[in-house]
Amino acid sequence: MSVLHIAEVTKTFSAGAKAVDSFSLDVADGELVCLLGPSGSGKSTLLRMVGGFEQPTSGSITIDGEDVTHLPPERRPTGMVFQSHALWTHMNVFKNLAFGLKLRRMPAAEIRDKVEAVLDLVGLAGYGDRMTTQLSGGQQQRVALARSLVLEPKILLLDEPFASLDQHLRERLREEVRDIQQRLGITTLFVTHGQDEALSMADRIVVMANGKTEQIDRPDVVYRDPKTPFVAGFIGSMNLIDGEVRNGYFMRSDLTVQLQVPDGPATLAIRPESLDVTASDTPKASVHRVTDYGSHGLVDLDLADGTRLKSMVAHPDLFRAGQGVDVFPRAIAAYRDNQQIYRS
């Protein structure tokens, strides 16, 4: 049972900027939680504070009830996989994995057994004698993961581990890492700025912006029901339209959508797949560009005032640039003062 509890953690750097601001999170035993946000959102700083590489300015971090807030990294029950792999190039694969075990004065035979078992787990059986510089990027990342796993940490910390890999390898590795994590049931905190990674791997996603939590939810909830306009804009593709609500109708240019909220400014959020378009003699928008992705198409539309919208269509060949179209939002959300005020 390994539970991570982060309570009101704040990190202020010397210049006075808050990298992390009153952040709280509970990660359950065996859960994989993704910290997702743009660069500078504080997600890596938070992960480094859990790993002990940064000290929080205030707040506390506990693992299985033990306060580790002020413990150095070498005394924490955590294992970190770094973005750049951080393998020791003067050691071979076996020595990279055995180093931590040797520091714990484990018998040589036990070290060999453990290292071979973990190499087998990450699909690198027989690679112990190779120098790390002789490995591909994906193999190096597996070694980095194995180096953390061999010490059986209570909490596994992954700091954008696939950022330096190509798309194909990234997709394969994230499946493998998720499988290993579930097989071992290890509590994991994963930092990424790739929403695909977060959506495909996480049990829960923490969306961060400017050091604060924007939303903590299951991946499907974060996608379908973003609680703030930032989350709506950051996760997936989204049409965010600023406009005015009057007498139960949201209005922007020729676009009018029924919205049962009090009058005032609002931001309307519509996913491209929730925005239907049809050819019309009384068009509300004109087609700017049609992109055919094979499985589907994306139509870029311009409202009369120049506002650009995107619509996902099944048959992109039905549309052409300059064509007048009518738009029909199916599922919408609306935001005011950074809060969700409506969802259909």
Binding site: F82, F99, A144
Partner: peptide, 27 residues
């Protein structure tokens, strides 16, 4: 000697002297 190499050594349990002896000095 990359900072992350040193942090990785500390992460697996090396103290300052062990980091110097096993990671920095060979490099």
């Amino acid at each position: 000697v990359a900072n992350q190499s040193i942090e990785a050594a500390r992460d697996v349990g090396a103290n300052a002297v062990q980091v110097f002896w096993h990671i920095i000095l060979p490099r």
